[in-house]
């Protein structure tokens, strides 16, 4: 199992243990983590699963793809160097844990 921590603006944190291969978006949506919408079901189409990945995990991630890059320009909260789409970040396979900050708004 892999561990995903969602840090919210109010100081609370949701910690999930999920199967390897699960995306950050899917984990959040199936477990009712607030602040992650994932409208398009994971095809990098809607920009509503925006997360800020904590610095120490960034290097372990695959590079931002073309579609993801395009969508990150359409997020409601500002894009930063830590911005990723939760649907494009999967845990497992060298990424046994990840921590993300959940933006204030997705829509």
């Amino acid at each position: 199992m892999a561990k995903i921590s969602f840090h919210h603006g109010d100081g609370s944190t949701d910690v999930l243990e999920v199967e390897p291969g699960t995306s950050v978006m899917r984990a959040a949506v199936t477990n009712g983590v607030s602040g992650i919408v994932g409208e398009c079901g994971g095809q990098a189409m809607c920009a509503t699963c925006h997360v800020y990945v904590r610095q120490e995990y960034l290097d372990a991630l695959p590079p931002v793809g073309d579609d993801e890059d395009e969508m990150l320009d359409c997020t409601v909260d500002e894009r930063t160097d830590r911005s990723r789409l939760g649907c494009q970040v999967k845990v497992g396979d060298g990424l046994e844990a990840i921590e993300v900050d959940v933006p204030e708004s997705q829509v």
Binding site: V37, E39, C40, G41, G42, Q43, M45, C46, T48, Q106, V107
Partner: peptide
């Protein structure tokens, strides 16, 4: 979030 554009794979 609303559902006007649908959701999931048929978004």
């Amino acid at each position: 979030p609303h559902l006007a554009f649908g959701g999931g794979i048929h978004y």
